[in-house]
């Protein structure tokens, strides 16, 4: 693929880098405990949590680095970090 002049690029290619492979601990979301407050979606440093039709948070494990910020901050204690078996 030819270079773009001046080392410029269009958006989109960051997603080629699947940072989920960095993860050691994986956040598990409990639908029962979740209050749908949306805080985890807002504060995720990856921006990899989205909302389903019911307003439930859905993490994208392709990009989740397992930092645990969401679990630490969840006011309903609905997210638990588990050691991931790979």
């Amino acid at each position: 693929m030819a270079l773009n002049i001046g080392c410029a690029a269009k958006p989109g290619r960051a997603r080629d880098n699947r940072t989920g492979s960095w993860r050691v601990f994986i956040p598990r979301f409990s639908r029962e405990k979740c209050s749908k407050c949306g805080l985890c979606i807002l504060i995720c440093p990856e921006g990899c949590i989205s909302e389903d039709e019911e307003g439930m948070p859905v993490p994208d494990y392709d990009y989740c680095k397992g930092c645990g910020v969401c679990a630490d901050e969840c006011p309903a204690d609905a997210i638990e970090m588990e050691l991931e078996e790979k």
């Binding site: 960051a14 997603r15 080629d16 960095w22 995720c44 990856e46 680095k65 930092c67």
Partner: peptide
């Protein structure tokens, strides 16, 4: 709040404050 202009796949450390700042 639903506007996402800073994409996944960036190489910040896990739990990076500046990465979160960029999104916000």
């Amino acid at each position: 709040k639903s506007l996402e202009l800073f994409d996944c796949g960036h190489r910040a450390c896990g739990g990076c404050g500046p990465a979160l700042a960029a999104r916000l």
